[in-house]
Each structure stands twice: as structure tokens, then as C-alpha cells.
């Protein structure tokens, strides 16, 4: 269990990147990229976890004390999620235009930018 969470984080990064490498469709590549990014959330939250500690929200919850799960990594993961979603939106928009101009989204068929 100790290293399982970190391993899953690395696995997501690897499997997402592998998805891009073997992709035959740019939309698929963009979605795979977001899988790779989800590895970063898992890593951050795993780093900040403390066994048996409650969430760092005190209203109506636990009495204020520092024995809570690390809120800093949660704030980072939140920022990360927003960034990921907006960049994914931009990438999908670009994919739509690639298709409109090239009539294909297969990377193997997009051969104009060479050399």
C-alpha cells in the first residue's frame, strides 16, 4: 500500500503518454494527454495524505487543529484541474480546425510539416 498511490500516479502519466504515441486520432491524443495529466493530481494528493486525518475544512467539521490532510496539495490540484480543462478545450478547438483544413485527424496522414 505504501508506494501503491505513487505508482498509480506514474502509471497514469505513462499510459496517457503511450496513448499519444500510438494514437491514430488527434482527439484521442488530446484525451490521452488529459489522462497523463491526471497522474499529477493523484501524485499531489497522495503526497499530502495523512492516515486517519480529516479534510482541511473546519466549518461544521472537525475542531480546528493542524492534524488534517495537507491542504496545500489540494489547492495545487484544484489549480491544476482548471488549467488542464482549459488547455484541453483549446486543444480540442485546434483539433476541430485541423480537421476542417486537412479533412483528417490521423497524425499519420498529416504530413505537411516536414523537414
Amino acid at each position: 500500500m505504501h508506494w501503491y498511490a505513487y505508482t498509480v500516479a506514474g502509471w497514469l502519466m505513462l499510459v496517457g503518454s503511450f496513448g499519444i504515441v500510438r494514437s491514430r486520432d488527434l482527439v484521442h491524443a488530446v484525451v490521452s494527454l488529459s489522462v497523463a495529466q491526471s497522474g499529477t493530481y493523484v501524485l499531489l494528493l497522495a503526497v499530502g495524505y495523512q492516515s486517519g486525518a480529516p479534510a482541511p475544512v473546519f466549518a461544521g467539521g472537525p475542531a480546528p487543529s493542524t492534524r488534517v490532510v495537507d491542504p496545500v496539495v489540494q489547492a495545487m490540484a484544484l489549480t491544476d484541474i482548471v488549467v488542464s480543462a482549459t488547455v484541453t478545450a483549446l486543444l480540442l478547438a485546434l483539433s476541430i480546425q485541423v480537421h476542417a483544413r486537412h479533412r483528417t485527424v490521423d497524425p499519420d496522414a498529416l504530413t505537411r510539416l516536414r523537414g
Binding site: 503518454s17 499519444i20 491524443a29 486543444l91 485546434l94 483544413r101
Partner: peptide
């Protein structure tokens, strides 16, 4: 420009990764 959108997408994927 067909090249323009493709270049932008490649740039974005590699830099984001």
C-alpha cells in the same frame, strides 16, 4: 492555413506534456 492549426496543435501537445 492548414499548417498553422497543425503547428499550433503540435506545439500545444508537446509543451503541455
Amino acid at each position: 492555413e492548414p499548417d498553422s492549426v497543425q503547428g499550433g496543435l503540435t506545439f500545444a501537445v508537446i509543451n503541455s506534456l
